[in-house]
Each structure stands twice: as structure tokens, then as C-alpha cells.
Design a protein around this nucleic acid. Structure first.
Length: 276
DNA sequence: CGCATCCCCTGCCTGC
DNA sequence: TGCAGGCAGGGGATGC
């Protein structure tokens, strides 16, 4: 997309999780994409109008690069007709003749357009937490975030207002690697003087290493996720707890069995024996 | 405010 | 084979 203009935007329905803004297609028409970026789990396309196209994939959203869906000739090159597939909801026709298609079976994703200057104050971003791979994440930050909290550790790590970007898989895997119980009240990891307890002192580093490993593995393909070349991620082959209910715990010396419980409506996988 | 529950939606898998 | 129920990577709305 970068460097191209959006010639036309085809909306195949009027909403995803939320309605598209009323002037969605018009505000994109003719705009050049200057850069692509990301904040938390939101994808950002900077436009030459000063607008930012904000996109969230939800659970099942994906983008693919395709030709035009009508067959198209631009600058002497004939782009083949590209089929519309089930759950194709948005198609951006680009100035180079290709198109970018957003597909999302469950429609938990959404898109919005925000003025660049308003982005940080926008309600999607105003309460968003720190980047887990940035410099702000350390034990001191975690101590401050956990202090006094009675919510389970699992829920606190999943809370995007604290750390933005950890999802269910990566929280489960992190807590197992760190030997911490997802059920423990987060505040119990903070000592009276406000420092993180010794049990939790590797947590920030563990979060980072789980994410780095997952990224190096191309992510986790449970069903929909693909790399940009269409290949599968393979971090799922290294899960120690996620979706491993009933399997023996692989922690050195541990004889426990991986369990599944439900916390705040979502599955948690953990070893009740070595995660304290 | 903090926390838990429910819900949005489609598709896939399991068990009967 | 068909059908009901449960579950899925996220997160907003609601209610206590």
C-alpha cells in the first residue's frame, strides 16, 4: 500500500463490528498512503490528507493482496480478475492496479478514520497501555501496575490498558515460563515497599522473550493466521500450555498436568503444579 | 473505580 | 448423516 493512492474503496457491507464512518470511502478517495504503522493491536495507514486509517483485525480478520476484481489495465499491464471470496468486506483499489482485500468471517474487526493530530486523544488510543517490546516494560512498571490489584494476574496481563498487545495465547505461555499462577491476585506480586517480589522478577523479561520467540516463529496459526507469503506460523508447535489440556507439564522436574479453566470468560491453560 | 459477566459473529469440531 | 452444544486469537457494554 505504501506509496500508492487509494483510487476507490469498495464496502461490501455497511458495518463490521461497528458501522463504518459515514464518509469512509470519500475520505480515502485519491489519498496517498505515506506509511504503515501499528499501535497496540491497531494497524495504521498514514494518508497524505492528515488522516489515519485505523484497522483492527479482531479474531479472524486478514488482508490479502489481489488484482482488481473487474479485470483492469493500467499503464499497459493487464491485471487478472480476482474473485470475491466469502467474507470479503472491504476492497481498497490502489493506483498501481492491485487491490487490498479485508476478509473477516466473524466481523469482530473494524476500521475507522481519525485525524493524525487527534490520534493519541482518540478513545481507541487514549487508554491504551505501553508497548511490551518497548523500553517502558520492566519490573518497576509491572510493580506499579500490579500494586493493590485484586484481579487475577491473567486478567491484568490481558488488560490492554496496561500492556497493549498481549493476547490470550501469549499471556498463558508467559505465565507458564515465569512459573506464576494465572489465578494469583496481581497485587500479591508486589512487596510492601513497592518492588516486585522475587517470584515475579523475571516477568518483564519473560513477556519479551515469549513475544520475540513467537514473532521469530511467524506467529501462531490456529486457523486463519498466515504470513504475508501465505505460509503458516509455527509458534503453535512450541506451545507449552495453550490448548494442551491433559498433557504432561514440560517444565524441568515437574510432574503436573496442564489444566484448562475459564477466567473472565476466556480459557486459561496452566500447570497447577509448577505455576505458583 | 475495579472487577466479572455477557455479548457481538461465523465456522469448526465433538458427541449423540 | 444431522443436529445441538461448545469453543475460538478481541474487546466493548453493562452491572455489581
Amino acid at each position: 500500500m505504501t506509496g500508492n493512492s487509494i483510487v476507490r474503496t469498495e464496502l461490501r457491507r455497511k458495518d463490521l463490528r461497528f458501522p463504518f464512518p459515514p464518509d469512509f470511502s470519500e475520505r480515502l478517495a485519491g489519498r496517498r498512503v505515506e506509511a504503515l504503522g501499528r499501535r497496540a493491536k491497531y494497524l495504521l495507514a498514514d494518508l497524505d490528507s492528515g488522516d489515519v486509517l485505523v484497522m483492527h483485525l479482531g479474531m479472524s480478520g486478514s488482508f490479502r493482496v489481489a488484482g482488481a476484481n473487474s479485470g483492469d489495465v493500467r499503464q499497459g499491464f493487464h491485471y487478472p480478475r480476482s474473485k470475491i471470496e466469502a467474507h470479503d468486506h472491504v476492497r481498497f483499489h490502489l493506483s498501481d492496479g492491485q487491490s487490498i482485500v479485508y476478509n473477516d468471517p466473524r466481523r469482530f474487526g473494524f476500521m475507522d478514520i481519525v485525524r493524525r493530530s487527534d490520534l493519541h486523544a482518540h478513545k481507541l488510543f487514549a487508554n491504551v497501555g505501553i508497548e511490551p517490546l518497548g523500553n517502558e516494560l520492566d519490573d518497576e512498571f509491572l510493580a506499579g501496575a500490579f500494586r493493590g490489584k485484586k484481579a487475577p494476574l491473567k486478567a491484568v496481563l490481558l488488560d490492554q490498558r496496561i500492556i497493549a498487545g498481549l493476547g490470550n495465547i501469549y499471556v498463558c505461555e508467559t505465565l507458564h515460563r515465569a512459573g506464576l499462577s494465572p489465578r494469583r491476585a496481581a497485587g500479591t506480586l508486589v512487596r510492601k515497599e513497592g518492588r516486585l517480589s522475587s517470584r515475579a522478577c523475571k516477568l518483564a523479561a519473560t513477556i519479551r522473550s515469549v513475544l520475540e520467540d513467537a514473532i521469530a516463529a511467524g506467529g501462531s496459526t490456529l486457523r486463519d493466521h498466515r504470513l504475508t507469503d501465505g505460509s503458516l506460523g509455527y509458534f503453535q508447535h512450541t506451545f507449552r500450555v495453550y490448548d494442551q489440556e491433559g498433557e504432561p507439564c514440560q517444565a524441568p522436574g515437574c510432574t503436573g498436568t496442564i489444566r484448562r479453566i475459564v477466567q473472565s470468560g476466556r480459557s486459561t491453560f496452566f500447570c497447577g503444579s509448577c505455576q505458583k
